[in-house]
Design a protein around this nucleic acid. Sequence first.
DNA 1: CCACGCTGCTTGCAATTGCAAACAGAGAGC
DNA 2: GCTCTCTGTTTGCAATTGCAAGCAGCGTGG
Lengths: 171, 171
Amino acid sequence: MALPKVGSIGEYIREQRKQAKISLRQLSAAAGVSNPYLSQIERGLRKPSAEILNQIAKGLHISAQALYVQAGLIEHREADSDVVAAIRADTFLSGRQRQVLIDIYESFRKENRTGTPAEDTQTSQNAQPRPEPAESDDDPLPESFAATLEPFVAEDHYTGNGNATPRTKEG
Amino acid sequence: MALPKVGSIGEYIREQRKQAKISLRQLSAAAGVSNPYLSQIERGLRKPSAEILNQIAKGLHISAQALYVQAGLIEHREADSDVVAAIRADTFLSGRQRQVLIDIYESFRKENRTGTPAEDTQTSQNAQPRPEPAESDDDPLPESFAATLEPFVAEDHYTGNGNATPRTKEG
DNA sequence: CCACGCTGCTTGCAATTGCAAACAGAGAGC
DNA sequence: GCTCTCTGTTTGCAATTGCAAGCAGCGTGG
């Protein structure tokens, strides 16, 4: 009724914000919503509209779908098409690359483990996906991570040049 | 904004309803919303919340995402590739973990861009195919790769500045 | 010490959602 | 003609969203 159980979405947003190491006001500005409102959302006092949710997702640089799933607005299967399955199905990757990606993905999952279901993506719509925020406060993800990878992926045909993969980053 | 430009979503719903050959009241009952409200939604006089949208999608037996896309609540381009979409939609990963996985995935893609045919229907817009002289047919992926990764991903505090700083535009 | 900048939270208030009730038009049957 | 039942619509109104303004706490430093 008046106070629906929308806690999980707020917790999720706050957690993502903390992981991104940005303040409430910063996110509110990035998302184009007011700070008090974001505060209330994060504490589960308000149920943000889809529009707001979408803006927050942008501010967090995450998929809006992720938030919608969290908010119970999308059935889980609909959006969460299982990363591993997608990797396995990708025809552009070699078998070894697939394995590496899957390994990394599962490392992340293990790292974040907060009591998540051990099964694969088979969650029903309401199965509390995020029970506890746990202590994953710091995010052990250095940017050098990707840099560390590149020597590997390029290993063979690559003779010590610092310019293995020039990322032309443009939208 | 007396007249919100939400027409398309309403038209879309009405169209879907007509195609399903059900009356406004029938759909409103199936979706669990009031008929007047559904009427207003279909005519673009009201902007339904995500919750209502979700219920309407159920009542229409269509994907909620379809409605969200119509409503502009989900970017259509959220479907880069299946892998990237899956990573983005995964609720168990942090924003940075997502970015790392996507970076790695795209490194692989870039690396493979010479030998693999891109005939797979993936709706990828292929920004600009850059012909890398790399010809990684098979192999250059040591098993030690995953082993090398572990320390990184599992390491507690990397104290490095991996911050993907969301630049606060304007001050 | 008090101003300044930052963090997040509380308080009214306009605008909006979403609904119950009532309204209008088109057929069907008596 | 009158009554039912269906169609979609309009009209108030409670409840909610979302915001501007202001409050409280914390660390810096002049």
